[in-house]
Design a protein around this nucleic acid. Structure first.
Lengths: 231, 231
DNA sequence: ATGTTTTTTGTACATATGTATAAATCACCA
DNA sequence: TGGTGATTTATACATATGTACAAAAAACAT
């Protein structure tokens, strides 16, 4: 047939479907993307999706399987290198950077991380996709714990809950930086570019390292504004 | 007729629909919630949604209209009070807190902010809902700019882009804390509760204030890891 | 009361969705 | 070359969705 099939023929239909699905899911989430769209973007037939993956949800899980292992391996590798740094401030920044960088870009291969996959996780997390949520928790908690432990070693005066909160904020900031980069450009009148990943990483590392070094918040008692309410 | 709007008083049905829609949207986003679900949750008929709101999207915008004004007014009020504090560190923390608190809970009225509405914004932001994105940008940029300006006054050595980045991280952390509170409980082995809004606010204020006071990140270019890539 | 406007209700419609399936086509090897 | 298993294609199906619409009901004004 026509050109539409070249993508499928070059890389294989299965690969083309994974690629197209990852791109579309990372832009609009899981619910808003139809299997017909994915097939069309991949230059493949609608039926090839149930054929190769069984279901739409399984296609999503396949994307996770392709990325999670390499991405977390790279994280542990970079954080391991960082822990050999003697200077405490430098080590803290390097550990944080080692955790952050693979979320923006993998090493050499296209797989194993990258901003697109992180953005995908961010959106699916917000969508509340159950399958994705479970895979995320199972697959990413160990590197999160590695980060928490490493920071605990560097800053032993901090309680674990405070470190957890701050690492949680880090992940939220990371997700949001990838989901909504336009806002940075807009609010800074173009002085900063939200899609400049290098700047985002540098800013995020500096801000997070400083936040980690702060004293834990004072008293968990009395005044907590009118915000003390449970969900 | 054209009078439909003024005559559309609180019949109960309209309010119930707004309430049910806000609850459902804040849990599962816009796409994944059907108008039939909303009607059922509100104890109303399916046809009452097109009747009262015209369309599903319009119903969403109505929710925004109910919250945006009061929430931003409260933010400006609290930040204004904060700016009268003489001590710089205290003022910085109070300004940040003034911006954060209304995102978790409004003053007296149920409307005008609150964690549920913030969570709604977070999810819709991630979903990439165009209508919501535009309203958010138009309605919230002014309070974001107020926060940025206030911080710029307290910390004049910081460039505006650095402040913008850090406020951006703040919003991402805030969103994520509301979207995924279970993760805090899980990673801390129950020592911290992600759904404790008071703790979340205290932790977020302390971390953000410390991040703001940090020096701007060093290198403008050069080494930025393997993460320097454009979206 | 009567007439008019507003609201509610039930249903219809066009479209979109994920998946199943059978026929057609291709790749590959004896 | 012929045949066999893998893949692709086209179509069908059941279901879900947002909205339109007309009739019924309720609320209201005079």
């Amino acid at each position: 047939m026509a050109m539409a099939q070249t993508a499928a023929r070059d890389t294989g239909t299965r690969e083309a479907l994974l690629e197209a699905a990852e791109e579309l899911f990372s832009q609009r989430g899981f619910n808003a993307v139809s299997v017909r769209e994915i097939a069309q973007a991949a230059g493949a037939n609608l039926g090839s999706i149930p054929y190769h993956f069984g279901s739409k949800e399984n296609l999503l899980l396949e994307i996770y399987r392709a990325h999670c292992g390499p991405m977390n391996a790279r994280r542990l590798e970079l954080m391991g290198e960082a822990e050999r740094i003697s200077d405490r401030d430098e080590r803290l920044a390097a550990v944080i950077r080692g955790w952050i960088v693979p979320a923006f870009s993998s090493g050499s291969d296209r797989r194993g991380g990258g901003a697109r996959f992180t953005r995908l996780r961010a959106i699916l997390q917000a969508e509340g996709n159950e399958a994705a949520r479970e895979v995320i928790a199972r697959t990413f908690d160990d590197t999160s714990n590695a980060l928490i432990d490493a920071i605990g070693n560097i800053l032993p005066q901090l309680s674990r809950d405070t470190i957890v909160w701050r690492c949680h904020f880090l992940l939220g900031a990371l997700y949001y930086a990838l989901i909504n980069p336009e806002r940075v450009s807009r609010l800074s009148d173009g002085a900063a570019r939200g899609d400049d990943f290098g700047a985002a990483i540098d800013q995020l590392v500096a801000a997070t390292a400083a936040a980690m070094k702060a004293d834990a918040p004072a008293a968990p008692k009395g005044r907590n504004g009118d915000g003390a309410r449970r969900q």
